[in-house]
């Protein structure tokens, strides 16, 4: 027998074993995918189940607050307002958790369409206007008139802007200013739009500038911290911006306000 002939059963045996291992690996991948789908489904159901009673709580509280079931005293109204604020905070956190869980298990996709950045800025600032007014904050928006129609995932951009503006309003004490600017940039020749959300609030120390974008990061992690949240907002914002091929960063110093910037490529159809 030649050495090649002698080697054949060994090779065949190896091949058989490798084939078995590949089948095994494929089976495990299938199981993991199923478990992942179950997990996402579970989180989606949980989110719906959590939001239902919360919706009822907020609706009833607003019914009371607006005097629909009779006059309320000023002190009763304050108490009811706390119920509503707390309820809405819970809602925001549930939404963030669900979005994070969904995005970390599936590959993120962009649902692309053409949209007007001006409309998006208007929509998001309108949502924050009454809260800003209640805090006595100046809210200013400025969008360059020569911006072309944007091409990107409109919902995701809205989410990023909502998060940044919400933070600016939350972290700026009464009497301060908050603003949203959008223009070509940073260099005029760039095929980019530069969006800025700034505030005259408490600011962020330089050594926290990268930390704040990390999952679950809290600048002040003590139990008595004033500002609550899951710590996912900026993580999600960065993921969404980078998905578009853009960049997000902050310029800020403690006690000197903050300016959050992000870029988005302008994808012309032409």
């Amino acid at each position: 027998m030649s050495s090649a002939e002698a080697a054949r059963p060994v090779v065949a045996d190896r091949i058989e074993r490798l084939e078995a291992e590949v089948l095994d690996a494929q089976r495990i991948i299938g199981e993991l995918r199923d478990r992942d789908t179950l997990k996402t489904q579970f989180l989606s159901n949980i989110s719906h189940d959590l939001r239902t009673p919360l919706t009822a709580i907020i609706t009833h509280a607003e019914i009371l607050r607006d005097g629909i079931l009779g006059d309320v005293t000023a002190r009763q109204m304050e108490s009811i307002s706390v119920i509503i604020t707390g309820g809405r905070q819970l809602l925001d956190m549930i939404t963030e958790i669900l979005m994070h869980a969904r995005d970390s298990s599936e590959p993120l996709t962009l649902v692309e369409s053409e949209f007007s950045l001006l409309d998006v800025v208007e929509q998001v600032t309108a949502l924050n206007e009454s809260l800003a007014a209640r805090k006595g904050l100046g809210l200013e928006r400025r969008v360059s008139t020569d911006l072309p129609p944007m091409r990107g995932d409109r919902d995701k951009i809205i989410h990023v802007l909502t998060n940044l503006l919400g933070n600016a309003v939350e972290f700026t004490p009464a009497g301060g200013r908050v603003w949203v600017h959008a223009c070509h940039g940073p260099e005029p020749s760039d095929e980019l739009v530069l969006i800025e959300v700034g505030d005259t609030g408490r600011g962020i120390a330089e050594d926290h500038h990268e930390l704040i974008f990390r999952e679950f990061a809290q600048v002040d992690a003590s139990a008595s911290r004033v500002h609550h949240g899951i710590g996912l907002g900026l993580t999600i914002a960065r993921r969404f911006v980078e998905l578009h091929g853009g960049r997000i960063w902050v310029e800020s110093q403690l006690g000197r306000g903050s300016r959050f910037f992000f870029t988005l490529p302008v994808r012309h159809r032409a």
Binding site: T52, T55, A56, T59, H60, I63, I68
Partner: peptide, 17 residues
Amino acid sequence: DSALISGALRVLLEASG
């Protein structure tokens, strides 16, 4: 389908006539 939510909305809408 949620009785909690429909209850709240019913109160609101009936009180508004």
